[in-house]
Design a protein around this nucleic acid. Sequence first.
DNA 1: ACCTGTTTCAAACAGGCGTTTCAATCAACT
DNA 2: AGTTGATTGAAACGCCTGTTTGAAACAGGT
Lengths: 220, 220
Amino acid sequence: MEAQDPTKVRLLEAAGEEFADKGFAVARVRDICVRAAANGAAVNYHFGDKEQLYVETVLSAHHCGMDMHLPRSEESTPAEQLRAFVHGFLSRVLALGEPMDWRHRLMLRELIQPTSASDVLVREVIRPKFERLLEILRRFRPDAEERSLYAMAFSVIGQCLHYQMGRPVAERLIGVETMETLDLEFLTDHITRFSVAALESMPPEIAVTGPSAQEATLLG
Amino acid sequence: MEAQDPTKVRLLEAAGEEFADKGFAVARVRDICVRAAANGAAVNYHFGDKEQLYVETVLSAHHCGMDMHLPRSEESTPAEQLRAFVHGFLSRVLALGEPMDWRHRLMLRELIQPTSASDVLVREVIRPKFERLLEILRRFRPDAEERSLYAMAFSVIGQCLHYQMGRPVAERLIGVETMETLDLEFLTDHITRFSVAALESMPPEIAVTGPSAQEATLLG
DNA sequence: ACCTGTTTCAAACAGGCGTTTCAATCAACT
DNA sequence: AGTTGATTGAAACGCCTGTTTGAAACAGGT
């Protein structure tokens, strides 16, 4: 850690690494202070206690890390817009080994196991991106009802997020070197083509009119 | 907990709930013992220590919980096979509030944050299901190269797993009551139609002509 | 009844944790 | 220099954790 930075930002940086690696419960404030080259009492002086340090770390993570520029060009085709969205999403999700690495890992922890800090996270970061995706999907399927639109959005998001969530298992399944060939460009291309093909050619939803209709869909 | 069960299985059941809810680090052996109506020293007597209890809990979870019957009917169409796969996968993933609920939550924890216990987990339950999915996808796309087949498999799996991983955030995004309308039947139908449409109509992958073409020849 | 091995129990233990304390240090202003 | 306020430092404090202890309760066999 750079010693010329003020102690507070060194603590935030160290806490980010530590929390992202181990989670709130396992992370130790002593380790954070050692990593930040600060005294054990520094975190209490600057942040009050461990939990407030965590909250401020999460907030500082998504303030400078997760904002993506939304190319609002209404001229481009829906497919191009979706590709841009997927590319932006994946580039953030797959960011590995980069200097601002811990920010993404920390936010993914928040997604899976929400704490009090994830309220503002959803409101300020996730929801705008979600609404943006819904806009794009509506251009594909103007007739789709809201519920199906949500499901489509989750289909796109789920494909992307899987390469962060399921990475450890995926590496064991197909090997690390094969997994490395699934790089940003390849996955952007695959997920976009997969989703566009689905969105353009999937049959309309089956209208559910009564309780017996669900059984009918089961039989296909 | 039923008091007629021997203490050891009561401890396993209680530990499963506790570990699935809070994770290994946050879960307290005292709480486990209270939940199991056992003494605080019981876990040490029966399992040695907390970590061995955790390992045995994970193993007991996938021994009786995660095995799905594979309908190997080669007569049915690929779409029907995929629907069966998605249905089976989702029914396990979405199992919330059911008696063997904690088994799935615990295994998903292992997937995201692997421990020593997840080696056997991947080998004995994940990989067979993954190979089965690859078989189905090969019937859709006999010409696809291996790497694309993996990506397609991850696209299907990612869609399903998202409803477990991203559930907390999804509930905040669209509301819990709307989320509850995305039940097993609806999601099975959606993911199957989405994926089948994609698999049947997505354009073939872009031929790689650059220096990475050597990798393509490697894959055959 | 007696012994024997297993299982339960209440209580205490040792260690690590977040946190607090208070004196020492530093920076800036009079 | 002297004073003031903010920051750092080393050490200690409680508290909560997993774990251990040794006696008590139980079961089965002789």
